[in-house]
């Protein structure tokens, strides 16, 4: 999941070198923390959060296979 978020984020931002993804695994849920440069926040969140939500939808598919919930936090 980490690699997926990394790939998508790096492909969309202006400063791919500042993209940092941390995966915090839990028993029933996984938290993915995505850190991007403040200038790139808009690109990752998108209009009305569309980009962030689309990433969440894709993550959910992967997490569901492991029977887990997933949260994407953009910081």
């Amino acid at each position: 999941m980490k690699e997926l978020v990394e790939y998508i984020a790096k492909s969309l931002v202006d400063n791919p070198e500042s993209v940092e993804v941390t995966e915090i695994p839990g028993r029933t849920a996984v938290i993915i923390e995505l850190k991007v440069s403040p200038d790139d926040m808009g690109r990752i969140i998108g209009k009305d959060g569309r980009v962030a939500n689309a990433i969440r939808v894709l993550l959910r598919v992967v997490a569901a296979r492991e029977g887990k919930r997933v949260t994407l936090e953009i910081i």
Partner: peptide, 25 residues
């Protein structure tokens, strides 16, 4: 089917992200 999702919701997200990245490249 998991890639399609309820009412094609996941498919819509997949297309959105793919087009966004391709457009940017």
């Amino acid at each position: 089917s998991s890639l399609i999702g309820r009412r094609g919701n996941t498919l819509a997200a997949l297309q959105y992200i793919t087009r966004l990245i391709a457009s940017r490249n």
